[in-house]
Nucleic acid binder design. Sequence first.
DNA 1: CGCCGTATTGAGCGCTCTCAAGCTAGGTGG
DNA 2: CCACCTAGCTTGAGAGCGCTCAATACGGCG
Lengths: 226, 226
Amino acid sequence: MNTTHKTCTYCHFSPFCHSHEPIKNGCVTDSPVKKHHQLKKNEMLCHSSHKFNSLYAIQEGALKSYQVEANGKELVRGFYLAGEIFGYEAIYNLQHLYSAVAITETLICEIPYDHFLQSLQTRPSLQKTILQLLSQQLTIGSYLISSNAEQRVAAFLIDLSKRLRATDHYFLLPMSRYDIGNYLRLTGETISRLFSRFQQKGMIVIDHKKIRLCQLDKLQQLAEGM
Amino acid sequence: MNTTHKTCTYCHFSPFCHSHEPIKNGCVTDSPVKKHHQLKKNEMLCHSSHKFNSLYAIQEGALKSYQVEANGKELVRGFYLAGEIFGYEAIYNLQHLYSAVAITETLICEIPYDHFLQSLQTRPSLQKTILQLLSQQLTIGSYLISSNAEQRVAAFLIDLSKRLRATDHYFLLPMSRYDIGNYLRLTGETISRLFSRFQQKGMIVIDHKKIRLCQLDKLQQLAEGM
DNA sequence: CGCCGTATTGAGCGCTCTCAAGCTAGGTGG
DNA sequence: CCACCTAGCTTGAGAGCGCTCAATACGGCG
């Protein structure tokens, strides 16, 4: 479990798994990863209100996190892509706020929180790393604040392309139109309409899950409300 | 600067300033606070794109943070009340993302980031504290996701009452209707209208800045979309 | 007292939603 | 191999929420 996998290359947690820094008190630390999970599409990783035990690093695939409102409506809170970490929000009061399900076939590393804390204790240089990672979380989805639908959708596509490390801005949408809409506080229908409109204007080419961002500058301008 | 002020009682950072835990390597650490700032209303604390050096603990008063879109529009990103910390979001790439200005007369403690990191190194028990604080940040403003205006405004009022530790849910609104609207992705006019509507329904009593939440259960139901 | 920033309230408009119908791709079973 | 089925997507029509613009009121402060 301590070998470097190809999927670890961009994992936010690789500093925790593959440090070459000398160990503080002489003992050999093994990887903080306890076990791996393979989830099929729509399989649940964890349910909100479950006790928090572990952080989860997505190796391959994608998760969505969501909560269910008192009126029964599902609210998508975020997407977690390969390399990203789910579970930070549960540290606060040791309880998950959101449920998480796989939206594609997904591989996951489970890192028990106490292993994680031990790593921090024995390798103090990881402190800065984790502060940065948590700070970065605060900036995610900052475009949700944008006022109109075009802005939010354009910003979402640009963000997704970056986070998936798409080559030539070509990638596969891991999630449905309805999940995108739910996340951006729009409807699936509105997402559909805007994809069509963006395509008409030549800014994207979209065919079901396959999408290419053609005019990043135009999309960027749209995202910035210009 | 190392004495416990009355204003420190609820400060998130008091564990960093007033720890009674034995110091690790024998030397006496003094408070991580470098200096204090007194800001008048509308005075700027820091400008976005400024290099990140310090975290700021609000002792008294309130800040708003905001960014300015490419089209010149101001976007309010958050409010910071007595006891809360501004600056976490800048740790990620050592640069402030948002500007911050005082919205009332405000007292602030400046904690240089390197002092802060030193505290973490010398007093490892603070690690858990800071992880919790950052995790908590991830949960703030979670009601921004709510679909309609009534939900967001109701949730905002409840949140504000808690964070101000209001007695009997009576408190003074530190910010203008327009800032509230901007933060909730509504307009100042809509905030005004909803305040009036909530008052008509008997859920709040409002007189300019003075507000009392009368029927918390009803507000809560509204906030939860029921 | 007069000024100015802030708040209230109204009228009309437009963006996004709701509801609904039709379409497409992929999977299943005969 | 093809008919069928289903989930997800597209597109349209109409409705409603929240916005824009504007007029007026209010309050603090010189």
